[in-house]
Amino acid sequence: MSEAPDSFLKVLALFEKLGVLESAEYWQQSRMARNMAAHDYETNYDAIAEHFNALQSLTGLLFRTARNLIARVADDLGVHPASTDFYEEFDRLFY
């Protein structure tokens, strides 16, 4: 999104303070793992499997972050998803 690196770090710090992110450090680790998956064309299938297992282990963090962001935006700004499509499926991820 062309933001300066220091401003992105400030956004992460704010989101951590507001409770959207559990940890800015965990978010950075997730981003790094995602970037590796998007740009690494490894042919070692054991390494590929290990990497995708690591990505799978991060899905809980990503879902919790999404839920926290949705709640924070609803509470602070009164903004809600335009559609309730998939709401039940998304909600079941947590219960």
Rank of each mutant, 00 (worst) to 15 (best):
M1R: 11
S2A: 11
E3Y: 12
E3P: 10
D6G: 04
S7F: 04
F8K: 09
F8M: 12
L9N: 15
L9C: 07
K10F: 00
V11L: 11
V11Q: 12
V11K: 14
L12Q: 15
A13T: 12
A13Y: 01
A13I: 03
L14C: 05
L14D: 12
L14V: 07
G19P: 01
V20G: 01
V20L: 01
L21V: 05
L21G: 02
E22L: 01
E22F: 00
E22Q: 07
E25Y: 05
E25T: 13
Q28N: 11
Q28L: 12
S30K: 03
R31C: 13
R31W: 08
M32A: 15
A33G: 03
N35L: 03
A37C: 05
A37W: 05
A38Y: 09
T43V: 12
D46R: 06
A47T: 07
A47L: 10
I48N: 09
A49P: 00
E50H: 06
H51Q: 07
H51Y: 04
H51C: 04
F52Y: 14
F52G: 04
N53R: 14
L55P: 00
L55T: 00
Q56G: 08
S57D: 04
G60P: 11
L62S: 08
R64Q: 14
A66G: 06
A66Y: 05
A66W: 02
R67F: 05
N68G: 02
L69P: 03
I70K: 15
R72Q: 09
R72I: 01
A74F: 07
V79H: 09
A82L: 14
D85G: 00
Y87R: 12
E88S: 12
E88T: 10
E89P: 01
E89A: 07
E89S: 10
F90W: 00
R92A: 15
